[in-house]
């Protein structure tokens, strides 16, 4: 999980292809902001992006910039890398619970990829890894000690 810049030609891992409903999320990542949506009435945040509140489409929703802080909720450490991830294995495929509530799949960077280093509940913060000129991926790193 090295953070060096690469070009599209070099980047061999699966890349997300934004849709109109998710474009703002990916544009935010490019700017270094974790953009989520929430209900204007209740403030409850949700993910992944969609232009309505799941379960109650009459609520008004808005984009906002999340704190980028969260905790490590769960993970596996993958020993069988798919194409593009050979140099990374073994690496954690993790789920982070954001302080705003939603959870998202990610990788934990700047951290040993071991059960000893990856403690459930540990505080993490977002960092953006540039994959191409269009796509930066939100990843998370441990904060504090």
């Amino acid at each position: 999980m090295k953070g060096q810049e690469t070009t599209l030609a070099e980047y061999r891992k699966p890349l997300p292809k934004p849709t109109p409903e998710t474009q703002e999320f990916w544009d935010g990542c490019k700017r270094g902001e974790l953009r989520l949506q929430r209900s204007k009435q209740t403030g409850k945040a949700y993910f992944p992006p969609r232009p309505f509140f799941p379960g109650d489409p009459e609520q008004e929703v808005e984009w906002f910039t999340a704190s980028g802080n969260g905790t490590l909720h769960s993970y596996v450490i993958n020993h069988r890398p798919p194409p593009g991830f050979e140099d990374d294995a073994p690496y954690a495929i993790a789920v982070v619970e954001l302080d705003e509530g939603p959870r998202m799949m990610t990788n934990i960077v700047e951290c040993e990829q071991t059960p000893e280093a990856l403690k459930l509940g540990m505080k993490v913060e977002v960092t953006f890894e540039k994959a191409t000129d269009e796509i930066s991926l939100p990843k998370f790193r441990p904060v504090g000690g």
């Binding site: 997300p16 849709t19 593009g84 990788n107």
Partner: peptide, 14 residues
């Protein structure tokens, strides 16, 4: 494809 695959899962075992 947008929110899980970029993080390196390799099928159901992961």
């Amino acid at each position: 494809g947008q929110f899980e695959s970029p993080y390196g899962p390799a099928g159901p075992p992961t």
